[in-house]
Amino acid sequence: MVEVVISLTILGIILGNIVMLQSASANAYESGVFGSTLEDSAESTMDRIALAVMSTRIDSLDEVLAAPGFCSEIDYEVVLDVIDGEPVFGAPEKIEFLMSTGQVMWTRDPESPEGVEISWSRYVSEMLEGEVPNGVDDNGNGIADEQGLAFNRDVNQIMIRLTLTREDSNHVQYTKTKTRRVTCRN
């Protein structure tokens, strides 16, 4: 009898460890996936935005102001070809931050009913990491109250800032911020 109890106890401890290990592994897995996926998403979104800004002209981005000003959307055109020595630009394109849905939306021909819309990213934070809506530059980057996607001009270059944030099932919040300085090539 005593042997049975001891055996059951040991088996219970082992099974309990297995369950705990499984639970911890699952949490670690989720954490790893969340962080890594968010990092990938931030990086790929920033790559797309940077490539779009590279392909346009600096003088077509009048809405992008120098710090402390910023904007969360840009209208631009990219070069398609050169005909008779003059660059030929494609249809107007737009990159904007939709705060209501937390998306970075890219649109071709925004004024046209046949325009194409693609979401480049979800989980964009309302405010850039470290920033709160108080009229003060909380994160020390020279801009106050900037949103999760912010463009500003630095001489003849464009600074792009992006923060993605996401919460897992354990209500742990993950935040990834990317910053890039881009020169318009046209």
Binding site: Y29, G32, S36, E39, D40, D47
Partner: peptide, 19 residues
Amino acid sequence: MGVCMVQLHTSQSRRQETS
């Protein structure tokens, strides 16, 4: 479980490396 996690991290690393 160890194999699964290694596979997961390997694929993530490949994606980041490609980027």
